[in-house]
């Protein structure tokens, strides 16, 4: 199985690579269009700021390539947010895969949300074998609201999308690579079940 982690200079990808290695697979980092298109599974990571990450995607032309991928794609954290229509962070347009506008948490909660929260209302094989209310690790200031594409929710002052899915595209707001055994299981599902 060929696993490619999209390398576009946005954030720490070493941890995702290690998490995949702990599951017994190898992932390669790549920004090469052919290599990404030919992968069996694509992981779209991201930490940092949305508008500058989008600028990097546009500069490399990956903003056009990613929405046309046919194999399973998993966006993680900012990766998931960039798969949405737009983000309030730096007022940027996103890739438009999910029909959602990413917005900032209200001032009634501490921002960023940092730590372990629960997922509920889980759907699809991405969460196969994962009990409802499992704990996952999150670090984020912006969130995707609920929509028909929501496949897991979480609660931080309001209920938001902890995971999204449309066709072959999956997105998780949390960090599966840092979410202990639950996270490893979710990554494993993406690699072996989806």
């Amino acid at each position: 199985m060929k696993i490619v982690i999209i390398d576009y200079g946005a954030g720490n990808i070493q941890s995702i690579k290690f998490a995949i290695k702990r599951l017994g697979f190898e992932a390669v980092l790549s920004h090469d269009v052919m290599e990404i298109q030919n992968a069996d599974k694509v992981i779209f990571p991201g930490v940092g700021e949305a508008s500058s990450a989008m600028a990097k995607l546009r500069a490399s032309g990956l903003d056009k390539i990613i929405p046309q991928l046919k194999q399973p794609v998993l966006g993680i954290c900012l990766g998931m947010q960039l798969m949405c229509k737009s983000s309030e962070e730096g007022n940027t347009l996103g890739l438009g895969i999910f029909d959602l506008d990413v917005v900032k948490f209200p001032k009634t909660v501490k921002v960023p949300q940092i730590g372990w929260n629960q997922i509920t209302g889980i759907k699809t094989d991405l969460f196969k074998g994962i009990p409802d209310k499992s704990y996952i690790y999150l670090v984020h200031s912006f969130y995707a609201p609920l929509d028909v594409e929501t496949i897991a929710t979480s609660d931080y002052g309001l209920i938001y999308s902890a995971a999204l899915q449309k066709d072959n595209f999956f997105g998780v707001q949390f960090h599966p690579e840092k979410s202990s055994d639950v996270g490893s299981e979710i990554l494993k599902n993406f690699l072996t079940v989806i």
Binding site: Q14, S15, F18, A19, K21, R22, Y137, V139, H175, E177, K178, S179, S180, D181, G183, S184
Partner: peptide, 11 residues
């Protein structure tokens, strides 16, 4: 840091 990241699955 590299070896810790390689080994543990929490932040």
């Amino acid at each position: 840091v590299y070896h810790v990241a390689e080994t543990i699955n929490i932040p």
